[in-house]
Design a protein around this nucleic acid. Sequence first.
RNA 1: GGGGGGUUUCCCGAGCGGUCAAAGGGGUCAGACUGUAAAUCUGAUGGCUUAGCCUUCACAGGUUCGAAUCCUGUACCCCCCA
Length: 374
Amino acid sequence: MTLGRFSFELHAIDSGSAARAGTFHTPHGPVEMPAFMPVGTQGTVKGLTVESLGASGAQMILANTYHLALRPGEEVVRDLGGLHAFCGWNGPILTDSGGFQLFSLAHNTSITEDKAIFRSHVDGRAFELSPERAVAIQEALGSDVAMVLDHVVALPNDEAAIRDATERTIRWARRCRDAQTRGDQALFAIVQGGLDGPLRVECARRLAEMDFPGYAIGGLSVGEEPADMYRILDCTVPAMPEARPRYLMGVGRPQDMLEAIRRGIDLFDCVLPTRNGRNALAFTDAGPVRLRNLQYERDPRPLEEGCPCAGCRHSRGYLRHLFMVGEMLGPVLVSLHNLTYYQRLLGQARRAICEGKFSELADEKLRGWGVFAS
RNA sequence: GGGGGGUUUCCCGAGCGGUCAAAGGGGUCAGACUGUAAAUCUGAUGGCUUAGCCUUCACAGGUUCGAAUCCUGUACCCCCCA
């Protein structure tokens, strides 16, 4: 499929699952999918330079509309040359719309049909975010991919509330599309519907009718059981256009990504590798390593044998020491390791899909992590 | 030599007759973290055969139904006077 300066080529579909490999082309370069986007909410992936971010293997990163509109303000970013120049990342950037903050900052947010009104978490001032405003901000920021403003609700929730938020998400998606003025920014729609399978399918189909250049699944991994998330993917993904990138927002743990790729998801973002990295948890093929644990005090091994990241030039004992004494290099190196681990995992997934051996890879990884396939 | 103040559980530090195994920090140990209000948060932290029992508040003795808390002596530390 080709859409202006964007296109999505499918290279392969796994023989034993719905997993697929492809390339998403953007004005700032290609993204090999399945892909993982590090989260750089405020225009920075916490603790990392763009050089080390590139070294981790990342191709596309995520930034946030709400946070950047609050500080420094989208006009400032625009006047400094747009998001790419502003943060120094010349690869593709996707901006989240602020919809997630309707959920995470719900306690100081009110929503009407027209717009959401936030009380700024920074200084308490009112901040309005309508679908039109979300698009305008993202156009000022100049990301490659903008997300529609969606209405995310906490789970579990009552049926009427979920239905209401889902319907609003569909109406807002249309308003976002109608508000677009730039031709060099792709707008992705977001499927909502809580844990209601038929509602998810209906939402996906109605959004598909509007023909967006990409589709996301939102409102998952917000506290529900993993099995519920997989169940929703099972029914929702087949209802999403095959010729467009399919993005599972906010996910996730390594096992969640493999389970989602198995079901046909192409794109992910998650704070876990960076947040957990800052909190001394490293991802490895043998499962998580909680570096503060006493057992690593004299461990001479790197986090992962053969990992090319800068953190793996050091022993676990040294990394533990950095955390125990509060040195900032600890969070930096383990964030870098985790992102590198995620990128390598996705790279292995892409190769396995092209070879028709994704299930074998997934089984092997899940076994290493000590979790069962779902 | 004389006068005054102090010694609390790994550390700092509250407590000043019972509700004290002893506040609060720190440290340590363990856990959590999924479109980032997170380099954050939570729990544990004398021992045990754990609804209870035992051993702790410099050391020894004493007063009291009952002492980390009061008294006497000893040791060490700090301040002032000579």
